[in-house]
């Protein structure tokens, strides 16, 4: 069982609150989403494991059980081509849950006309694999968002 932590501080809005159908319809997997606090911050690893994909605006960490968790920072942020994101780790790195992975400023993303909402997705998780999924409320970075059996 994997405890999946919030990569950012903010207000939980659930995947349905993400203004993008890929996440809102859970096409790549179930999970939740956090509307981040509008202040410069460091998005952290949601689980302990290996960073198997690292883009400036998104990353995937796979834990020892093979659970891959995608963190996607903002919507349509691929179009920023890395501007406003600072990589604090490298693809292939082993990280502990809570380690910083990407530095960013949600306020900057928003002032550029994009949503900074951060989706946290349990890749390829089956129905019922997630329990205690937060859908609302305030969280700090490192607070538990859901557990994955």
């Amino acid at each position: 069982m994997t405890r999946v932590l919030s990569p950012v501080a903010g207000r939980v809005v659930g995947l349905a609150g993400v203004p993008d159908p890929v996440f809102a319809q859970a096409m790549v997997g179930p999970g939740t989403a956090v509307d981040p606090r509008r202040a410069p911050g460091r998005a952290i690893a949601p689980v302990s494991g290996r960073i198997v994909k690292l883009h400036p605006h998104a990353y995937v960490v796979v834990d020892a059980e093979g659970h891959g968790v995608l963190v996607h920072l903002g919507i349509d942020t691929v179009k920023l081509k890395g501007a406003g994101f600072e990589l604090l780790a490298a693809e292939g790195d082993e990280v502990a849950a809570g380690d910083p992975v990407v530095g960013w400023n949600p306020a900057e993303i928003e002032s550029g006309g994009r949503s900074p909402i951060c989706a946290v997705v349990a890749l390829d998780a089956g129905d019922g694999a997630l329990t205690d999924v937060l859908e609302s409320g305030e969280v700090g970075a490192g607070d538990e968002l859901f557990t994955w059996d």
Partner: peptide
């Protein structure tokens, strides 16, 4: 593909993190 989103000649093919 997990899903396909189309808007005119722009087609988004949802394939997950193996996209790159």
């Amino acid at each position: 593909a997990f899903g396909v989103m189309r808007s005119g000649t722009v087609v988004q093919v949802v394939v997950g993190p193996e996209a790159d």
